[in-house]
Computed example of a mutant assay.
Amino acid sequence: MNSYAVFLRGINVGGINIKMAELKDALKSRPFSGTKTLLASGNVVLASDLDPAGVKTEFEACLRETFGYDAWVVVLKADRVAELVAACPYPPDDASTHTYLTLASDHHALTELYDAGSALDGTELTRLGPEAIAWLAPAGGTLDSPFSKLSSKPKYKASTTTRNLRTMIKVRDAATGLGS
């Protein structure tokens, strides 16, 4: 059994409101165990015998069937979340900046996003692997930062989601040893 972190895209914003207790209850019908929701922003850890693609398929189907919206998730093995957190060159807490990780289920879309983001003036980002980019935003100005505006374009909606590094650390800690 493998431990996974599942990152939901676009819930509890834009009119798609899902209570975490309802999500956890809906997931009981799927081939998952040890399911835990973290924070109210769509972070789930669970264990499953499925591979990452299977977890993604089952999870998205559950969201669509239960909550009736076009659902997209990024699924990472728990050990990969730990590797990404460790590889991030930016601090989790800083008075002047916030650190974010943009995660992707489509490596080509992330490469395109990284290349476009690298061309932006004043944007500091680091490619952590085929599924993640770490980047900095000014404290209090995340949504107005050039990379945030770029990454929120509709063409990235189905394949990317962003979490701050502090959230990634909480997800890492919750997923550690879940499926072993």
Rank of each mutant, 00 (worst) to 15 (best):
S3D: 13
A5W: 10
V6S: 10
F7L: 14
L8G: 13
L8P: 14
G10M: 12
G10F: 02
G10N: 04
G14M: 08
G14S: 13
I16F: 08
N17D: 10
N17M: 10
I18Y: 08
I18R: 08
A21C: 01
A21Q: 07
L23C: 07
A26F: 04
A26W: 04
S29P: 00
G34F: 02
T35Q: 13
T37S: 13
T37K: 13
L38H: 07
A40T: 14
A40Q: 15
S41E: 11
S41T: 14
S41A: 14
G42E: 11
G42Y: 05
G42M: 08
V44M: 11
V44Y: 13
A47C: 12
A47G: 15
S48K: 03
L50G: 11
P52R: 00
A53L: 09
V55I: 04
K56R: 15
K56T: 09
T57K: 15
F59N: 06
A61P: 01
A61R: 14
C62E: 11
T66H: 05
F67R: 12
F67Y: 06
Y69L: 01
A71Y: 06
A71P: 02
A71I: 00
W72K: 10
V74Y: 08
V75H: 05
V75L: 02
A78E: 09
R80W: 07
V81P: 01
V81S: 06
A87S: 13
C88N: 11
P91V: 03
D94S: 12
A95L: 09
Y100S: 01
Y100H: 12
D106R: 04
H108R: 14
H108N: 12
E112Y: 05
D115M: 05
A119F: 10
L120P: 00
D121M: 09
T123N: 11
L128S: 04
P130E: 15
A132N: 01
I133N: 01
I133R: 02
A134E: 03
W135I: 05
G141I: 02
L143M: 04
D144S: 07
D144E: 11
D144P: 00
S145G: 07
S145Y: 11
P146W: 15
P146V: 11
F147K: 03
F147V: 01
K149E: 12
L150Y: 13
L150A: 06
K153R: 15
P154N: 14
Y156F: 15
K157E: 04
T160P: 06
T161W: 03
T162P: 04
T162K: 02
N164D: 06
L165H: 09
M168A: 09
I169G: 09
I169R: 07
A175Q: 08
G177S: 10
S180P: 14
